[in-house]
């Protein structure tokens, strides 16, 4: 039998507690135990970023986090970030520019991009590209994604200076 532990953490804003096998990585845990489908894997060795989650306010590779390492953390997936509306503007920009084709990389891209939407310092396209450089997309050619991130950043900055 797989060793199990009692695991308690916050998932998309709700406290959860469950007995889970320790050998699951975070994506398998969220999919198999918590019934989510937004987090996905494309490599399980840290390269592709499809598994990207927000853990304690920071980006993390879901495939490189073991279930027990989530103890006491605050975990957000694309489902939660969609529900709060936090990245609705970014999602709209992605949609308007067709910055997703097959959609496999999309949640990871959105969560990764979300981290720099409010970064105060100006960021040129190359800096955006470098921030996204750990997220693999085979379909889009990246440009529409960079465009969408750039547009959202600018809109938010304009909103801030208008406020």
């Amino acid at each position: 039998m797989d060793e199990e532990i009692e695991l308690a953490f916050t998932l998309n804003g709700k406290a959860v507690r469950r007995r889970v096998p320790v050998r699951l990585h975070a994506v398998d845990l969220l999919r198999e135990v918590f019934g989510l489908s937004g987090p996905r894997v494309a490599c399980e060795h840290g390269i592709c970023g499809a598994c990207t989650l927000r853990v304690d306010g920071q980006l993390a590779r879901g495939c490189l986090l073991l279930a027990p390492q989530l103890e006491g953390t605050d975990v957000w997936t694309i489902e939660g970030l969609t529900a709060t509306g936090e990245i609705a503007d970014l999602q709209n920009e992605f949609h308007a520019r067709n910055a997703m084709q097959c959609g496999w990389c999309t949640a990871g891209m959105l969560i990764t991009a979300a981290e720099i939407l409010d970064a105060p310092a100006p960021m040129d396209r190359q800096a955006i590209r470098e921030h996204l450089s750990g997220n693999y997309c085979r379909c889009t050619g990246y440009q529409a994604i960079v465009d969408a991130v750039e547009a959202t950043r600018q809109a938010r900055a304009a909103g801030r200076s208008a406020a």
């Binding site: 970023g49 993390a60 590779r61 986090l65 990764t112 750990g134």
Partner: peptide
């Protein structure tokens, strides 16, 4: 060193 997500952990 690696990418943002990896630098975070």
């Amino acid at each position: 060193v690696a990418h943002a997500a990896i630098r975070n952990r």
